[in-house]
C-alpha cells in the first residue's frame, strides 16, 4: 500500500513497529499545517522552527515510550495540542505574553486609524488587512484563537475543538462572539473597511 494512502493511525502503528519511513511520511504530510499553526502563534520563523522541532521530539519520545497510541486520538490534533502546550509553557515561563487591552495608554482609535485616505486601491487593501489584524489582536485570547484557526489555518470547527480541548459548540460560540466583538470594535471606532 502506498504510504500516501495510508491513514495516520496506520502510519503511527508502522512507526511503533520500527518503520522510520512512516514518521517521515507523517512529518511530510502534516508539516505545513503544524508549521503554519506554530507560526500563527509565535510570528517568527526561527522560533517556529525551534517549536516545530521540540514538538516532534516530544511526539517521538511519547510514541517510542509507548504512552501513545489511542486509536480515538487523531494524530494531527494531538500534535497541534503538543505544539500549543509547548508554546504556552514557553511564554508562561518567559512571561513574555503580549497583552493588548483597551486602555488609555493603548487606545484602539490611534492604533487602527487610517491616516492615508487617498492612497491607491492596493495600498488601501493592505491597510485594511493591517487594521483587521489589529482588531483581531484586541479580541479575548479564546475568541482570537478560534478565529485565527478557522480563517488563517483553514481548520474545521471539529479540528479546532479537538486542538483547544473544548466542545464544538463552545468553538462555534467563541467564533460568534469574536465576529460580534469585531463588529462592535469596528462600529465603535468607525473603521472604514471598504475601498
Amino acid at each position: 500500500m502506498a504510504k500516501s494512502q495510508t491513514s495516520d493511525a496506520q502510519l503511527v502503528n508502522m512507526y511503533i513497529s520500527g518503520d522510520e519511513n512512516a514518521l517521515a511520511t507523517l512529518v511530510e504530510r502534516h508539516q505545513s499545517r503544524i508549521y503554519g499553526f506554530i507560526y500563527s502563534k509565535v510570528g517568527d520563523r526561527d522560533k517556529t522552527d525551534d517549536f516545530f522541532q521540540e514538538t516532534f521530539i516530544k511526539v517521538i519520545k511519547t510514541i517510542k515510550s509507548k504512552e501513545y497510541y489511542n486509536e480515538k486520538g487523531k494524530f494531527l490534533p494531538w500534535v497541534m495540542r503538543i505544539a500549543n502546550n509547548l508554546i504556552v509553557d514557553s511564554y508562561r515561563k518567559d512571561s513574555k505574553i503580549r497583552m493588548y487591552r483597551d486602555t488609555e495608554e493603548f487606545p484602539i482609535v490611534s492604533m487602527i486609524k487610517d491616516t492615508t485616505p487617498s492612497i491607491e486601491a492596493d495600498m488601501i487593501c493592505d491597510q485594511i488587512n493591517t487594521d483587521m489584524l489589529k482588531v483581531i489582536e484586541l479580541l479575548p485570547d479564546d475568541q482570537k484563537q478560534v478565529l485565527m484557526m478557522r480563517y488563517f489555518q483553514d481548520m474545521t470547527f471539529k479540528e479546532i475543538s479537538e486542538v483547544t480541548n473544548v466542545s464544538m459548540n463552545t468553538s462555534l460560540g467563541r467564533m460568534r462572539y469574536a465576529i460580534n466583538n469585531m463588529r462592535k470594535i469596528i462600529e465603535k471606532n468607525q473603521i472604514y473597511l471598504s475601498i
Binding site: 522510520e20 508549521y35 500563527s40 522552527d49 522541532q53 516532534f56 483553514d154
Partner: peptide, 29 residues
C-alpha cells in the same frame, strides 16, 4: 471577510535541516 487569505495561507514549511534533525533523532533514539 475583509482579510486576505494570503496573510497566513501561503504554504510555510520548516527548514530542511529541522526535518533532517527530527528524522535522524528518531533513528538514533
Amino acid at each position: 471577510l475583509y482579510s486576505k487569505k494570503r496573510l497566513a495561507s501561503s504554504k510555510m514549511l520548516p527548514k530542511k535541516e529541522t526535518i533532517n534533525f527530527i528524522l535522524q533523532y528518531s533513528k538514533a533514539l
